[in-house]
Design a binder for these strands. Sequence first.
RNA 1: GCGACUGUAGCUCAGCGGUAGAGCUCUCGGUUGUGGUCCGAGCGGUCGCGGGUUCGAACCCCGUCAGUCGCCCCA
Length: 434
Amino acid sequence: MSDKKKIYKPKPISGFPEWLPEERLVEQRWFDHIRKTFESYGFCSIETPSVEEVDVLLAKGEVDKEIYAIERIHKEEGDDKESRLALHFDQTVPFARYTAQHFNELVFPFKRYQMQRVWRGERPQMGRQREFYQCDIDVINVDNLSIAYDAELPAIIYEALDGLDIGRVQLRISNRKILMGLLESMDIKDHVSITRIIDKIEKLETDQINQLLKDEGLSGEQVGKILKLAKIKGNADVIRNIEAENGLMSDGIDELYSVLDSLAHLPEHGVIGDLSIVRGLDYYTGTVYETQLLDVPQFTGSVCSGGRYDDLAGGFINKHLPGVGISIGFSRLFDVLRQTNPDKLGIGPKSPTDILVYVENSDDSPKANESARTLRANGFNVEVYHPVKKWEKHLKYTEKKQIPFICYPKESGFERKDMSNGLQEPVDIKEWKK
RNA sequence: GCGACUGUAGCUCAGCGGUAGAGCUCUCGGUUGUGGUCCGAGCGGUCGCGGGUUCGAACCCCGUCAGUCGCCCCA
């Protein structure tokens, strides 16, 4: 009697988003714009495998990262001796490996961009997924790398983000040497836990920050000096007037001044020196970046971050290869906008089709296909609605997919219907061009 | 990994101890002026899963899994 199909009920996997065609279309538009911006500054594209050897990903000793390892289902006893693979956690480390591995074939300073998925095994929430796209640009050079690149990258990023129509963005820039110099001058060793606390300055009350720092064993005077420095925000001149305690600090101030000064052409809200920016990742050694969406106060995280790293690739080759890079948190940006400000996303039609060609009955198919070819040659995206159905069906389909025109044959030639106003008129398809 | 909350139709949810419901979506038909409106019909659910209590469980209890939000961390 009942021969019901067995159905495995699909459910979304948390943190692994997928979009509808109309959302994907916007995503593709964003990718195109970002790619064009990067290439306009002479960056070339590379792609690295989704997986790296675990040893490569952990080369910088960041073992606490939430990395997905992969494994064959038909794994057998003894297969353990294969090197373990894992999905890459970011694109910076694979890029460093790539640069070292292809060192002899690359031209330096090596400027590349990379737009790929990365994976992190963390609990998802708004703007945080487990599988997401990042758009990275980095420059790596041999032995030394001009500080001018530290300023060029944020300029490129600003241009890329500004073109997406997502409201005002603000790049916040600091230089780790400034805070590190201060800590050094006070003979404080545990940089990592201090910087983690500084990182929360925007989130917590001053009292709480004070307490956290004191819990680390700092004196009241030390805490005061650190907080006074970390709360400095402003333009190039503000940074220039900071008093240096030692050479390291002085270097940091000079570098940050130089970077901010080179970015003076950006709108005032677009870039700011902010000494509370220190970044969690421990391989950054100089300039560090974060980016805020000024018009989305509900989301305070950074949508685009990066920094200068002195020798990330040096672990893979016996050379000194300093670099600087920034990564747009593409999926974070898209997701945050989608959830908080869907109008800004400019979700449009459900397909790229410009013209639907109407087939009245199956005898007309060859004619329809041929006219579609003509229109495609004229630059349009054209689809033929093959099922032979009533005119109303065609209209409904065209309407639902928000296709602007229907083209249909008449005794002599063709007519087109403009879906925006219902107007129908004869058309010479050879002369109808995009 | 930790904490709080939530799992019923494709989606949004009602039902809270007595035969599984609504709206939307979808399919088909009718009305209409060639898209809209309106009308009718149909498709669609082991009530997350496993156990327990009960004459009887979507509902109460225990466990488990999944999800959402927050923390940690970060794009």
